[in-house]
Computed example of a mutant assay.
Amino acid sequence: MRSFVPLLPLVLGLLAGAAHAQEPCYADYKASREQPLELQYGVAEIRGECSVPAAEQELRPRLAAGGWQLLQVIATFGEAGARERRESAGEYYLEY
C-alpha cells in the first residue's frame, strides 16, 4: 500500500490556493449622471474575475440601472483596500 504522506503538501497547497481565490474582490470607480450633473466615487463588490476590465463590464449595467454612467474603474483590491476606502466612498460604499 502506498503512502499518501508525500502528497499532503500538494493537497494542502491546492486547498490554500482555492481559499485565496475565493477572497472577496472590490473595485473603486467614478460615475456620473446628468440633469443636474452629479459625480460619484464609490466602492463595489465584484462577483466575477477580480480585474479592472471585468469590473467595468460588471459595474456598467449595475450603475446604469440606478441612472449612473460609469466613467472609470480605478482599481480592484481585497477586503483591506475596501476598508481603507470606506470613508471616501461615503454613501456609495457597496451601494452598487
Rank of each mutant, 00 (worst) to 15 (best):
E56Q: 14
L15M: 14
E49R: 14
E34M: 06
A64N: 12
Q22V: 02
Q57A: 14
Q35A: 10
A89P: 06
F4K: 03
A89R: 10
G78F: 07
L8N: 02
R60I: 01
E79F: 03
C50L: 11
P24M: 08
Y41W: 13
G78A: 09
L10A: 15
V11P: 01
S3M: 01
I74Y: 03
L14S: 05
S88F: 05
P36K: 10
G67S: 04
M1W: 03
G67P: 06
P53F: 08
P6N: 06
R47A: 14
V52E: 13
L7H: 04
L37M: 14
G17Y: 04
E49W: 07
R62D: 04
E23A: 15
L14V: 13
A54S: 15
A75S: 15
R62S: 04
Y26G: 06
S32L: 08
A64S: 13
V52T: 13
Y41G: 05
L7W: 13
Y92A: 14
Q22R: 14
Q40G: 01
V43D: 08
A55G: 09
L94F: 07
S3Q: 02
G48V: 05
A65Q: 15
A80M: 02
A16P: 01
E84K: 15
L37I: 03
T76Q: 05
A82N: 01
K30W: 13
P9D: 04
V43M: 05
V11M: 11
W68I: 09
S32M: 10
A80H: 06
